[in-house]
């Protein structure tokens, strides 16, 4: 099973998806500079440090997060755009059986990739959160 984890912060641990087989492959897509993660492959996306700082400050409150969402520097929208710009992400998504939006800012990219892949054939399963991912994996 090919699994792509959209985790902008890079927070991922193999313990999040127990029971994977040797032949399963996990690719984590995160912003560059995220801490090292235990995945078969990590694809790092570039972002402007200034945007990241502004978003981090505003995201400390619900009102701030709602404001950020409607601005171009929204983390979810930027993560989606950066993932489109990185050709390797599209290739991995194209091969994926399961896409996981592991964080809130990975949700929009997951949804957009689901829509894009559904136009080109059978779309992969796309879920939010590791609990849902584990439920999907257990049903394979």
């Amino acid at each position: 099973m090919d699994i792509v984890v959209l985790a902008p912060s890079g927070r991922y641990s193999a313990d999040a998806l127990p029971g994977l087989a040797e032949t399963d492959r996990v690719t984590v897509v995160s912003w560059v500079g995220a801490p090292a993660v235990e995945a078969d492959e990590v694809l790092e996306l570039r972002q402007s440090p200034r945007s990241a700082r502004v978003v981090a400050v505003l995201s400390r409150s619900l009102a701030g997060r709602m404001l950020v969402r409607v601005l171009p520097l929204d983390g979810g929208a930027r993560f989606w755009r950066a993932s489109v710009a990185a050709g390797e992400v599209a290739r991995r998504i194209g091969e994926a059986d399961l896409i996981i939006a592991a964080e809130r800012d990975g949700g929009f990219a997951a949804w957009k990739w689901m829509r894009n892949t559904s136009r080109t054939g059978a779309p992969p399963a796309v879920v939010r959160g590791y609990a849902a991912a584990r439920a999907r994996i257990s049903r394979r």
Binding site: V70, A77, I99, A101, G107, R128
Partner: peptide
């Protein structure tokens, strides 16, 4: 948790 059921608004502006 099933992203296939999300609307664009839910995906883009979750809060």
């Amino acid at each position: 948790s099933d992203v296939a059921e999300w609307s664009r608004t839910q995906a883009r502006f979750p809060e």
